[in-house]
Computed example of a mutant assay.
Amino acid sequence: MTEVPTVDRQLRRREQTRRRLIVAARELISAKGVAGLRIADITDTADVGRGSFYNHFASKEDLVDAVVRETIRDLAAQIVAGADESGDAAVAASAADRRFIRLAYDDVDDARLFVNLAHENIFEDSVGPFALRALEVGVASGRFTIPNLEMALIVLTGSALTLMRLILDGRAPADADVLHAEAMLTMFGVPAEEAHRIARLPL
């Protein structure tokens, strides 16, 4: 029986340790935010030595960036990619908006991760490009009338995050995602009756 080379075992253990650190950081960010994140807490939660941390990450900021790359960007990409296949930019934008907000109902940990990174450039850098692309497609297709894309992006992401906080705190109705999508579509120039219908399409 052939023995697995030692180097393979070492690589697997190294990757397992890195994964544990990322998972621990994600849990702590969801609970406390980035400002309250300490390396000692991360290593304690991951049950690894402090020296192991620096074998994988140069700083806390490097670890936070890894959490973002492996969690938030992937999740944002999935939300946008799975939003709509009909070719209607308004339907796609509505579905993506609702799926994002519904994280606060359906996946509390990920929702708290988004909310706790809201005041960091990390959040804007990770989620902003996907939201901006949805707005640009809407404008290019003639579905949206948006005088200033940058301002529209600020309103869209800011109101979505505020609503997610309210949902997490139990202060929003069960259909808050629908109401938000309808309001955004109307603001972007979709006729009110059509915005009402699109926002209520099944996800």
Rank of each mutant, 00 (worst) to 15 (best):
S59N: 01
D88S: 14
E15G: 02
M151G: 04
V127T: 04
G128A: 10
F123T: 01
F130M: 03
T43F: 10
I198G: 00
T157R: 14
P173H: 09
N116I: 07
S94Y: 03
F53H: 09
A96W: 07
P5Y: 00
V115K: 02
I22Q: 07
A81N: 12
L103V: 12
V4S: 04
L28P: 01
A152F: 05
V80L: 09
L113K: 05
S52R: 13
A183H: 12
L37H: 08
S159G: 03
F144W: 10
V48I: 14
A35V: 11
T45P: 00
M184T: 14
D88F: 02
A90W: 07
D107L: 02
Y105E: 07
V178A: 01
I167Y: 06
A92F: 11
T186A: 15
V137L: 12
L63I: 12
A77K: 12
M187R: 14
G128Y: 05
T71Y: 10
M187H: 08
A96T: 05
E193M: 09
A160N: 09
L156E: 05
D62A: 15
T6K: 15
R197E: 13
V127Q: 02
L28T: 01
D106G: 00
K32I: 13
L201C: 05
G82L: 04
V34G: 03
L185Y: 06
R143Y: 02
R38V: 01
G138Y: 05
L185W: 04
L149V: 11
V34Y: 04
V190M: 06
A181F: 00
R200Q: 11
N121A: 00
A24F: 09
V4G: 01
T6A: 15
L179Y: 00
N121Y: 00
R9G: 14
T157S: 12
T6I: 13
F130D: 03
P173I: 07
E70D: 14
A58D: 15
N55Q: 14
D125L: 12
R18A: 13
I122D: 10
L75N: 10
Q16C: 00
M187D: 05
V155W: 02
